[in-house]
Amino acid sequence: MNRKSTHRRLLTAALCFTLPLGLVACGTTPEEEALYVGEAAAFLASSEEGGDIGADAVADADDTTVQAIAAEETDGVDVEPTDDGGLCDFRARRQAVMERYDDDGDGSLSNAELRELRADLGERRDTIRPRLAQLGRRARHWAFWRVRWAFDEDGSGTLSTEERTAMVDAMEARCERLRAERLERHDANGDGKLDEAERQAARDAVRARWEAKRQELLAEYDTNGNGRLDDGERVALRQDRVAAAQERRATLMATYDTNGDGRLSTEEALPLRKEIQRRIIEGRDAGN
């Protein structure tokens, strides 16, 4: 089946959700199920990473969003990495989603089960529900917001079937790229997998990078020297993160706001979205 045919089938299926009682009339197709399970897997992947995936989406973030992103980043400063040293496995994330939402255990999602998954995914950060967030070892909602922004090419605020498909494909490709990179660094015996000693080495490397960054932050913001960031110190860090995001936003606007009207039109934002997509697929900004 060619890509155009696949997208046409997905679009037809998606239209069922826009009609009154569409789920009852149209039913659940395998393509729909795969697409939304894949999106949930993408949420888990972006949330669990420790880096700045899609960071340049800040170009189109309002001040409230910038504040929220900075707060999420600050709250994660003292959270140790959950990375167990294993290899990125997008299929396992899909399976975890299926197991959570396949309430009747028949191996596929019914209309009601798929409707619940779609509702939990939402379209904005504040509509992602705890049931999905709790599947991951971390939940960085604003990281996923940035990924979604990059693939919302028409700037509608929601993902079309084609945009959602592209996002899922990109996140799966990212996982494969990160998997290969970890094997290259830590598969000492070259057998194409990580044994327990190699996984421990990968785990130790992630934690060492995290600890080094943490110590840098403590050196700058732990003014009372107690080895952690108190509330006031966190406020200072958050304010600096906001200032850095605003500065980055100004830099990006200077590049992409070609008519100088202070906002990104759909046409002006598209090259930036494409650039972020490229970095996502290439496994950039992973931080682990």
Results as ranks from 00 to 15, higher is better:
5 S>F: 10
5 S>Q: 15
7 H>Q: 14
13 A>R: 00
15 L>Q: 13
19 L>K: 00
21 L>V: 12
23 L>D: 11
26 C>V: 05
28 T>K: 09
28 T>M: 07
30 P>D: 09
33 E>Y: 10
34 A>D: 13
36 Y>Q: 09
43 F>K: 01
45 A>N: 03
46 S>I: 11
46 S>F: 13
48 E>F: 04
50 G>F: 00
52 D>I: 13
54 G>L: 03
64 T>L: 06
65 T>E: 14
68 A>G: 02
69 I>R: 11
72 E>D: 04
72 E>R: 01
74 T>D: 00
76 G>N: 08
79 V>R: 10
82 T>G: 11
88 C>A: 15
89 D>E: 00
90 F>D: 09
92 A>V: 12
92 A>Q: 13
96 A>R: 15
96 A>F: 06
99 E>W: 03
102 D>F: 04
102 D>T: 06
103 D>H: 10
105 G>W: 00
105 G>H: 05
106 D>P: 08
106 D>G: 07
113 E>H: 02
116 E>C: 10
117 L>K: 14
128 I>A: 13
129 R>T: 15
130 P>D: 12
132 L>I: 12
139 A>T: 01
140 R>M: 10
140 R>N: 09
144 F>W: 03
150 A>M: 15
156 S>A: 12
157 G>M: 12
162 E>W: 10
166 A>P: 10
169 D>A: 13
169 D>T: 06
170 A>C: 12
180 A>T: 04
186 H>G: 04
189 N>R: 02
190 G>E: 03
194 L>S: 08
200 Q>S: 12
202 A>D: 00
203 R>C: 12
208 A>K: 14
216 E>A: 15
231 D>M: 07
236 A>G: 12
236 A>I: 06
239 Q>C: 09
244 A>Q: 14
248 R>F: 12
250 A>W: 06
251 T>H: 12
252 L>A: 06
255 T>Q: 08
258 T>R: 14
261 D>C: 03
262 G>F: 11
263 R>N: 09
264 L>Q: 07
266 T>F: 02
267 E>P: 00
268 E>L: 02
269 A>P: 05
273 R>W: 12
274 K>I: 08
274 K>W: 08
281 I>A: 08
282 E>N: 13
